[in-house]
């Protein structure tokens, strides 16, 4: 962990308009859940919106924006060399950026979900807890995966979107086997240990834990490794 790198990453994340985009996610999610709660006066439906929409769409997108914002632009235009031409381990560079991105995701995703969940729920604390734990675990893995993506591909954002919306969103609904390779499903499976109603057990618990662990650690490690081979490409 390098505080200077983290500070620069934070500046990149909070820079002007970007933060507004990040802020839009929790605001929209909370707004919608509260609205539904008020209109239907049914806590279960409102929680369904909060965690359904939150885990399937908001959380992965939040992670995608944060992870690519701290890494993508600098990889893209090569100005990462200023951070890398230093006696600092490149794994530590990747890890510092990861910590900042993850902190932003946790702050704007699982935390508001937890608070809103308790505010609009009707005493079903286990469900809120299960959802928030799933969201936290999902955030750890998604951020790591998207950080790794943004060190590899210029179009990391679009690839990430395809993964989230097509693979985890659409295909997972059609083919149940996708659950074996779905961060959202793993996270939900672990959350289900708190409240069995929270999710079905499409994958065994050991697999969910192991896979989340591998993606969470592996993504950051892989990013660091990519930075170790970071090459400066000239125009000639």
């Amino acid at each position: 962990m390098n505080t200077t790198i983290a500070r620069l990453a934070l500046a990149a994340l909070l820079g002007r308009k970007r933060f507004i985009l990040l802020l839009l996610f929790p605001v929209a999610l909370i707004g919608l859940s509260v609205l539904v709660r008020v209109l239907t006066s049914d806590a279960e439906v409102a929680l369904g919106i909060l965690f359904g929409l939150g885990l399937l769409v908001i959380l992965p997108l939040l992670a995608l924006v944060s992870a690519t914002a701290v890494m993508g632009p600098e990889v893209d235009d090569g100005s990462l060399v200023y951070l890398l031409a230093k006696p600092v381990s490149r794994h530590s560079v990747a890890f510092s950026k990861y910590v900042v991105a993850l902190a932003a995701v946790l702050l704007l995703g699982p935390l508001p979900m937890l608070v809103t969940g308790f505010a609009i729920g009707s005493g079903d604390q286990d469900l809120v807890l299960a959802g928030s734990v799933s969201a936290t675990l999902g955030a750890i893995a998604y951020t790591s995966l998207f950080l790794a993506l943004s060190t590899v591909w210029k179009h990391a954002v679009v690839v990430g979107l395809l993964f989230v919306l097509l693979w985890e969103g659409t295909l997972a609904a059609i083919f149940s086997g996708v659950a074996w390779l779905s961060i959202g499903q793993w996270a939900a499976r672990i959350g289900a240990t708190i409240d069995a109603d929270w999710a079905d057990d499409a994958v065994p618990l050991w697999w969910a834990v192991g896979a989340l662990f591998v993606v969470g650690i592996g993504g950051v490690w892989f990013s660091g490794d990519r930075l170790r081979s970071f090459s400066l490409k000239g125009d000639d």
Binding site: G78, S79, V81, Y82, A85, P87, V88, R90, L232
Partner: peptide, 18 residues
Amino acid sequence: NTEAYRQLGLVPEREISF
């Protein structure tokens, strides 16, 4: 060899995006 950068100062051609 990241330790080399203690001895090395680099001014790349690229614009800085900071």
